[in-house]
Simulated assay, not measured.
Amino acid sequence: MILAEVIPAPLVGRHVLVLPAGTDVRPLAAAWFPGAVWERQPLDPGERPAAARPTGARFRGIVVEAPRPTTGLLRLDASAALDGPVRLGEPVARALGLGARELDAWSLVVGAGDDGSGSEPARTDGAPGDPASRHELAEGWTVAAARRVRGAVLPADGSRVVAPDPAAAVDLTLWSPLPLAPQDVVPLVRPALAGARIGPADAPTPEPADPTAQPFSVAAAFEYDGVVTIRAARAREVPLVLSTVDQRQYGTWAYHVAWQPPDSTELLQEQPSQLHLIARSRVTPSVARVAATLWRVAGGTVVDSGGFVVTPDELTDRARDLR
């Protein structure tokens, strides 16, 4: 498939984030770029101006009023912004292999001014002045955002459609103000992790000034599905997304619930084996149940491996075993 023959011409040659129609892109952006702000709000269809009409005296020539832009410009940081949305109808979505649904397309642009003038598409072809190195973070965010909401990314080279699997984001971290003792955690998580046992901590031992905050790990091994590990320690830094949350709703005590499959190399594969997918489907509800249990006891905020906040309702959905 040649993307240039499928997508609207203004999107050709641009790095494009494709989201389900109507998705609020700013909260997604704020997870990685807390200062994300609208420099130009997108217009709703009802607010869009009519076609430009010529004005001016009959014998003084014709002057055409410049139409107002209908797309918005969301500034991510000093060097990157999103321009959009451009609505993609169901025929385009089907042609892209993204199902029969409407989509919103957002172009990643660089060097955009307050009105978007002079912006250039983010390129990855190594051309002189290539801004890809400066915008690697922004491009990485587009993949994470697409995974978060079942969207896709259309690279600037038009080579393919990247549709990250949302189910691949298994790991969860609870950021809580309350440290728990390992002997208290084990009985809490054993209903979800049969055979869970206290293991060695990967974090350094805390200083005597903080004797209650003891790092630890708890692990449960499964014959065919790998290992689920809970690693608890006080962190010096927290994810950027927590800057968008009330400070009373999280802490620096991190409970990281992670899955290590039998073959860890499959975590990086776009199309892992069927055995990996089966194991993942069995483990994902357990990881969510552990995070939900710790959240109910210690409080705080849960963040997924993509850097986005996971709500209690979403935890409940993840904890359902749909096999």
Rank of each mutant, 00 (worst) to 15 (best):
A57Y: 08
L240K: 12
P69A: 12
A80C: 05
S119C: 08
A146F: 06
T205H: 07
Q271F: 10
P49Y: 03
G13I: 04
A146G: 08
T212L: 13
W106A: 05
G116E: 07
R318L: 15
T265E: 15
S286E: 09
P285A: 08
A81S: 15
P27Y: 04
R40Q: 15
V189T: 09
V297L: 00
T212W: 06
G56H: 11
T293C: 02
S286T: 01
L275F: 11
R87Y: 01
G299K: 03
T55R: 13
L88E: 05
L17A: 13
D165R: 15
A78M: 00
P8I: 12
G300D: 01
P45T: 07
V12H: 02
F222D: 13
R197H: 05
L17K: 09
Y255F: 10
T284Q: 15
G299E: 04
G46W: 11
R87F: 02
V86Q: 10
D115I: 06
A233G: 10
I62D: 06
P182R: 08
P10Q: 11
V186F: 05
A167K: 11
S273R: 13
V170G: 10
R101W: 05
S107D: 04
A51Q: 10
G126Q: 01
F308M: 07
L240N: 09
R58V: 14
S107F: 03
M1H: 14
V186Q: 05
R60G: 15
F59A: 13
V143M: 13
I2P: 10
P42M: 09
E223D: 14
D44N: 12
S117P: 00
H276P: 02
R150N: 12
P211Y: 08
S305P: 05
L108P: 07
P239M: 04
W259R: 06
Q183F: 08
G35C: 02
L103E: 06
V64G: 00
L137M: 03
S286G: 00
A127W: 06
A122I: 03
A144S: 13
R68L: 14
T293W: 00
L267S: 08
V186E: 07
R60W: 12
A181Q: 14
F33I: 07
P206V: 05
G195Y: 12
L294F: 02
P261E: 07
P206L: 03
G97K: 07
A220H: 12
V303E: 09
G199H: 05
G299I: 06
V149P: 05
W38Y: 11
P200C: 00
H135E: 01
V143K: 14
V241K: 04
E39G: 04
V257W: 00
V245E: 08
A36H: 03
A138W: 03
P69K: 09
V227Y: 07
